[in-house]
Design a protein around this nucleic acid. Structure first.
Length: 107
DNA sequence: GACTTGACTAGAC
DNA sequence: AGTCTAGCCAAGT
């Protein structure tokens, strides 16, 4: 099982209408400093993966080569009911909380 | 096995 | 709040 595959498996668990950050995914996999590698895992991923539910630590959509792809991500999120504010996802409202510890600790 | 490449981040101004 | 920087690390070459 490669790192990339574990990322995909976890991303599939993010429910509709919620988002996770790259760093959060990395931390949940026990590799808190591999956020960047998580981005790499999503750069090329299966078409049916809900990749749009992963955003950066500020709730923003991270740079892609094509801007159309960034727009696609926002549109897909809004279609799931995710609210944006000044170009950022409202993390307070939509951050995926998978554990009790995170429920307490999320800013 | 040694580089290089990013869909990252926290910290410093 | 915006910009820069230095770490970081899995994958690709």
């Amino acid at each position: 099982m490669t790192f990339r595959e574990t990322v995909w498996r976890l991303v599939r668990r993010i429910p509709r209408g919620r988002v996770a950050t790259y760093g959060q995914i990395a931390a949940l996999l026990g590799r808190p400093r591999s956020a960047r590698a998580v981005g790499g895992a999503l750069r090329r991923c299966p078409a049916d993966l809900p990749w749009h539910r992963v955003v950066n630590a500020q709730g923003g959509i991270s740079g892609r080569a094509q801007m159309s792809s960034m727009l696609t991500q926002r549109i897909r999120l809004e279609a799931e009911g995710v609210a944006f504010r000044r170009g950022r996802v409202v993390l307070r409202a939509h951050a995926w909380r998978s554990t009790a510890r995170q429920r307490r600790g999320f800013p």
